[in-house]
Design a protein around this nucleic acid. Sequence first.
DNA 1: TTCGCCAATCGAAGCGCTTCGACAATCTTG
DNA 2: CAAGATTGTCGAAGCGCTTCGATTGGCGAA
Lengths: 336, 336
Amino acid sequence: MVRITDVARDAGVSPSTVSYVLSGKRPISDETRHRVEESVRRLGYRPHAGARALAGRRSNVLALAVPLRPGIDVPVAMRFAVSVVTTARRHGHDVLLLTQDEGPEGLRRVVDTAWVDGLIVMDVQLDDPRPALLRGLGRPSVLIGFPADPEGLTCVDLDFTAAGEACVEHLARLGHRAVALVGSPPEVYVRGTAFAQRVVRGFTAAADRGRLASAVHPCEASPEAARAVAERLLREQPGLTGVVVHNETVLEPLIDAFEELGLRVPADLSITAICPDEVAASLRVPVTSIALPADEVGTRAVELLMRKLDGTAVPEATLLPPRMTERGSTAPRAVA
Amino acid sequence: MVRITDVARDAGVSPSTVSYVLSGKRPISDETRHRVEESVRRLGYRPHAGARALAGRRSNVLALAVPLRPGIDVPVAMRFAVSVVTTARRHGHDVLLLTQDEGPEGLRRVVDTAWVDGLIVMDVQLDDPRPALLRGLGRPSVLIGFPADPEGLTCVDLDFTAAGEACVEHLARLGHRAVALVGSPPEVYVRGTAFAQRVVRGFTAAADRGRLASAVHPCEASPEAARAVAERLLREQPGLTGVVVHNETVLEPLIDAFEELGLRVPADLSITAICPDEVAASLRVPVTSIALPADEVGTRAVELLMRKLDGTAVPEATLLPPRMTERGSTAPRAVA
DNA sequence: TTCGCCAATCGAAGCGCTTCGACAATCTTG
DNA sequence: CAAGATTGTCGAAGCGCTTCGATTGGCGAA
C-alpha cells in the first residue's frame, strides 16, 4: 500500500504539503503542486479512507435507506437509488446501503459510528418514526416524501398538488367540462402517505378554478372495485368525459370497465393518470400520465444534502414540477 | 461523542481491556467483562468506524456492484441486493453500493482506499472485464454468474444445467416423448452470459438420457419471432407435446401463438419456463417454472465471502439447485 | 539597510482504535 | 515449595491522515 509519506518522499516534500495539494486547503506553489501530482499519479496513491475519516472528521459517505415494504414500485426505487449513487459519486461521496429490516436503529448506528456524513431516507410515510429520530441525530439528512410534520427537516418530492392540477388543466384545455378523480384506497387517505391528499387538493382546486364539475372517488385495489367505481361514475356524473386516475393497480381494470360500459377511450372518455411511465405505457391503451421523476428526485436529494454538509441553508420543502407525457388516452371532447 | 477512553474510565479499566472485551480476542474475567459491558450500554458507546478500520485493518464493509445494463430484471436484482445487505448485517458488515457507471475503476478505488474488506459483483457476463481485475486486486470477492474463465475466482449462480434437466425430467415424468427448448436470442449464445449454454446442455442431456426427441430453437425477443418459432416447431416436430422456454419476453406471445394454432395449454401442450416467478405467475396461463433464487444467491454469496475473509478455503463454483413451482401449464400427455 | 509581511512549506500533535509485549497474580507440577 | 505455566490486565506504540502553529525566505516599505 502506498502511503502519504511515500508520496512525500518521492516528491521531496513533507506529508502535510501532499495533504494540502490534495485538499487545496492551503496555497501551494505551482511547481511543488505539479511535482506532487506527478508522484501521486506515478505511485498510484489513494488515501486510506479510514485514516482520512479519523483525522478529517469526514467520511465522504452517505447512507441511503431504501424501502422494502410491499406496495413499493421496485424499478422506481432502484432508479432512484442509482441516481443517488451517481450524483453522490460526482460529489466525491460513496453510498452505504441500509435496508428497513434493521429498523430506525440502523440510521443511528451508522451515524454514531461516524460511518456517514449524512443520510437520505426514501419513502417517508405520514406516520414514519424516522423523522423524529433524524431530528435528534445531529447530522444532515434529506427525506424523500413528506412526514406529518416536516418542521425542521429537508424534504423532496414530486409536487403532487401541481400534478393533480396539471391533469385537470390538461383535460380542461381539451374542452372537458366534467371530470372525476379515481384515487387510492380509502385507508391511504387515513394513514398513508401525504401525497394522496395533495393530489386531491390540486385536482379539486384546478377544477373549481376552471369551473369544471368534479368528483373524487377513492378506490380499492381490485378489479371489482374498479368496475364498481366506473359504474358509479357514469350513474352519478352523466356528463363526465375526463377521468384522472391516481391508483396504478386499477388503471387497467378501470379502462376495461369503461369500454365494457360502451365508452371508447379516448373518443368518448379521456383518461390521464399519475403513475410510473412503465405502467402507463404498457397498457392496452397507453395512458397520458405524470410520473414520479425518480432520477431528478435522487439528484436533488443528494445536492441538497451536499449543501447542508457545506453548512449552507436549504429550503425545507423541495417540490419538483410534474411533467406530463401524452400517450393518446386523451382527446378533445367530442361535441355531441 | 463517547470514546473508548470514556468507557475505560467509567469501568475503571484500561482502554485495551475495553477493546478486548468488545473483540473477545483475549480472555477477560467475567467480573471485568460485565462491568465494561454495563459501561458500554450506559454510555451508549459505539466505536468510531474509521478509527477501527485504521487500527484494525478491517473496515467491516463489503462492496456490492449492481448492474444497470438494460435487460436486467430489476425486482430480481433488488431482492438480491436486499438479501446481501441483510446477510452482511448478520455478519456485522455494512454494504457500500457501487453502480456500473463508474466502471471497473470503482472496484479498484474502494479497494485501494481500504474502504471495503471484500467485494460482491453481480451479473457477471462471459466477456466481463471485471474478473481479470478482481484477480489482481488482492481482496476476497464473490461473483454472481460465471465469466468465461472462472479459474481462481469464487462464483455463485443457479445451476442452469440442472434447471434445463429438471424441466425435461418433469415433462418426461408426465409422459411426454418429444420436447423442444425455446431459448434466448441467438446473440446471447455468442457473447452473452454463460447460463444460456448451460440450459441447452442440461436440456439436451436429460432428453437424450430419457430418450426423448428434442430440438433447440433460439428466439429473438419479439412477438413475431415467437410466432415464427411456434409455427416452425409444429411443422418440424409433429409429435411435440412439451416445450421448455428460457426467454421470458416471448413467453406470453408464444403461448398466444400456440393457442391460435389450435393447441390448448396444457391439454395439448405442456409448457415449463425458466424465468422470474412474477413473470410466470402473472401470465394468462400461469406457467410452471424455475426461478432464479435471488435471496438464496445473495445469502450464499455473502457467506462465501465471509469465509474467505476468515481465511477459509471455499469452492470455486457454487451451483444452487433449481426449484420448480407448478402452476398448471403442464399436464400428463393426452393419449391419442 | 533593516523591519515587517506575506506566501509557501514543515513538524508535530493528535483523531480513536487495536495490538503487542510486559507484568502481576494465581495456579500447576515435580 | 520453588520453578514454570497460565490468566487477566495494563501501557505504549502505532495505523495513515489532517491541521495547527511555527518557520523560512523573499519582498516592498520605511
